[in-house]
Amino acid sequence: MKRIEKTFAKLKSNDKKGLVTFITAGDPSLEQSATILNALPQSGADFIEIGMPFTDPMADGPAIQDSSLRALANGMSLKGVIKMVAEFRESNQDTPIILMGYFNPIYTYGTEDFVNDAADAGADGLIIVDLPPEEDAELRVPATKAGLDFIKLLTPTTKGARLDTVLQNASGFLYYVSIAGVTGTKSANIDEVGAHIKDIKAKTDLPVAVGFGIKTPEDAANMSKIADAVVVGSSIVQNMQDNQKDSNLPTIIENQVSALKKAI
């Protein structure tokens, strides 16, 4: 069984919901980023999303935009992201890692090379924001072949026939974007999200994780009632920005993550 599937199965058998935490690779510094990544599982992260920084993150709000630019200024690259994953896997064989980002750096790296290198390093899935179903075959087919799950984004506008289109070829889990907007901005309307997830669940057996706009343990608690997992990104990244000079940064992030985990 693949790591993502196994983790969801385990959560389900314990009657628990999952916590997905997002960090940008290389932010706020290369060293701190690796330290924080390695500590995420024991703080309570069931899944880890690693942002692959890009100069022009068109679906992200200010917090993740800034973290991407910081990471790039620190010299982070796709090669660096893959190396971080490989080093993480030296001590952790259980926590799934999902790489999230934009297509251009992957296209420039070489699509086939990238999926093979990412899979070899121990990554489990990909979320590529600017590859809708109309354009995703170019990466999805080799990624699936390399053993990576190709995780689809569903949004408040993914309704009717569009929902069927997006669900085709989805694997791993579904990432439900709870607001029409960029990361870390508005808060979601939980009733609308709940109703939409119900429609989605009627059409697929894949687990559904909800993200975008989930900031506090309270948000996470509410969202975990209607989803299989919740994703927290911008507020963790923002916390890193606010405390990047603090030598206790890893502990600050550990505390934030364990508070989120306790809430769900």
Binding site: V129, P132, E134, E135, L153, T155, T157, T158, V177, A180
Partner: peptide
Amino acid sequence: RYCAETLMP
């Protein structure tokens, strides 16, 4: 059409 899914419809 390399867009975020929110924009696709």
